[in-house]
Design a protein around this nucleic acid. Sequence first.
DNA 1: TTATTTTTGTAATGATCGATACATAAATAA
DNA 2: TTATTTATGTATCGATCATTACAAAAATAA
Lengths: 193, 193
Amino acid sequence: MRGRPTIYEDSNIIKKAQEVFWQKGYSATSLSDLQKATGAGAGSFYNTFKGGKKEVFQKAVQERRLAFDEFKNELNKSNSPLELIKDFFRSIAEANSNEHLKGCIIANTVVEMTFIDEDLENSAVQILKEVEQMFTEVIKKEQQKGNIKTQTSPEILGKYLITFWCGLNTLRRMYPDKNVLKDQIEMQLAVIS
Amino acid sequence: MRGRPTIYEDSNIIKKAQEVFWQKGYSATSLSDLQKATGAGAGSFYNTFKGGKKEVFQKAVQERRLAFDEFKNELNKSNSPLELIKDFFRSIAEANSNEHLKGCIIANTVVEMTFIDEDLENSAVQILKEVEQMFTEVIKKEQQKGNIKTQTSPEILGKYLITFWCGLNTLRRMYPDKNVLKDQIEMQLAVIS
DNA sequence: TTATTTTTGTAATGATCGATACATAAATAA
DNA sequence: TTATTTATGTATCGATCATTACAAAAATAA
């Protein structure tokens, strides 16, 4: 392959940019912020991402979806998928204060981008709906197996969990405290049993 | 009183500015946006609000708190405060699509401002905590009266309701649909009974 | 009337915004 | 070596940012 070798790998730029976007959101993050965080100058940045700031944000969001896909794979292999979901929620309480304050980049994006950028808004909403559907499917199966007593429909329970996830996204900022969150998460998960 | 008469009333500027902030958030709202929305030019704007954009945002948020105070007063006069709270949540489903997409300006602010402006973040968090406390107090009283069977502590149930409120803030954007939201709200309120 | 006070409208400020232009560096292909 | 290709660093773009400066407008007080 010809040409000067790349020193700023795409994936690394996205990773570093994601950290800034996650904390500051889309609008409040400047190109200058991204250049400082990634080390890449404007030349490299726009050579790699013709779509500029928006393209990098999209890719940072999509990168986050990969983590979700991975979790979904684990769910499919698991014998107790509901317990895996519950443990995922429980693990949130164990995060450090900075992670609490950052919250979920997808949920943050839905709140921030509604009247700002339709594309970014839609792709974030889409991901949340996929997560919701994952919840719903697991609940449906577990209900059929008799592992869940509640007769509430899996659709409503799935929406209950995604609503909880989004609510937790704010509660964590109000109380970035392990003990508070732990009790709260346990109480809310008890609804699905 | 001396001097040229005011044609842009403070309260009116705040009201108009609030509408823009509510939709677009703090960072994405420009002074130009505010001037278009309020009609007031830079002269009037900075003559009235020395603190500029931030001061107006603060006042727009505090104005919203008044609505909360009013509700709190109604709660204190009510014989069935819990039902009043539940009806408040139920009324959310009846909002129009634009209102769903706007969500709650206080909850939005907590998500947006975390790493951006400590003052604005803190005042929004403060308001949510006061709402939570209102929930908690009502639940405590109703439990003592025997109107709530659940033995879960009022503190956890209060946090449950504020978490629901914040979760609903995102769910409404995913599904700005009366029927979806109605069922969801009813299910979540059933936990407090 | 004249002086004083306050609000308003407009022009300008310097800073920063996201993005582009372009020369140079650094590799491979011919 | 020389030509070609790609990435990088830097200068700069016009636009917009939040804010300030300032003169004119419009009222009351003297």
